[in-house]
Amino acid sequence: MKQGLHWLTLHSVLIYGFLYLPIGILILYSFNGQGVGGFPPKDLTFDWYRKLFQDDALWEAVFNSFWVALASVGIALSLGTLAALTLHRVEFPGKALFRQLVLLPLILPGIITGLALLLIFVYAEVSLSLWTIILGHGTVFISIATTEIFSALQKLPPSQEEASLDLGANYWTTFWRVTFPNLRLPLTASGLLIFTLSLDEIAVSFFLIGRTNTLPLEIWSRLRRGITPEINAVSTLIFLFSLVLLTVSYQLQQRFTNRSTP
């Protein structure tokens, strides 16, 4: 058994190595003066970062990506809340199909949903632009918002809403003053998740892209033209940014859960 445990420890260490080695190499070579390959890294420099900050096309793509992510979070959260309320409170024929359809983009490979959306936009003669990407991301990520909010709704005691309605508040007031405050945690959590996923999304955007690129697509098109450590540098920055976002969402979640369980 002791012997087995040693193997298990070794296996685990190796896996951490496998998971982190490429990321470490990527970051290391963003400082490499000699290009993206070769060994050992030589002429360590900040030049690639300096180039990065003067690269207007790249910053425009960053800006586009943020805009797309924000707008898709808005769409996914509002429709996700409505869809979760619908699944929780309304019975109608075809409800099972509705549930399946909402969840489908989460399970299907991105190419299928991307293609499907491309077809409807082309047949409806909608020209492709950042807006089609926003609609695409918004639609794909409704699945995440719906799952999170639906499970929160199931945990809410119906008595609170009943009390509010009995005391004469209308549905609108009841939602904003009673239900919504209870949904803040799943809304924030899924909002942050959708924001990060949208920033990184490429399979669906790939089909819905017009003339303006999002950041992943800008990187994708540069990969074909030959690669420089500038891409390593921008990847490193994206990684750091995701780390910050992750820490923030973790802290928020901790604070919320501490408050709700006194």
């Binding site: 990184d200 690669i227 891409i231 990684f239 995701s242």
Partner: peptide
């Protein structure tokens, strides 16, 4: 949380 594209790259 590291971009899919970045890991491929």
């Amino acid at each position: 949380w590291v971009s899919y594209l970045v890991r491929g790259y």
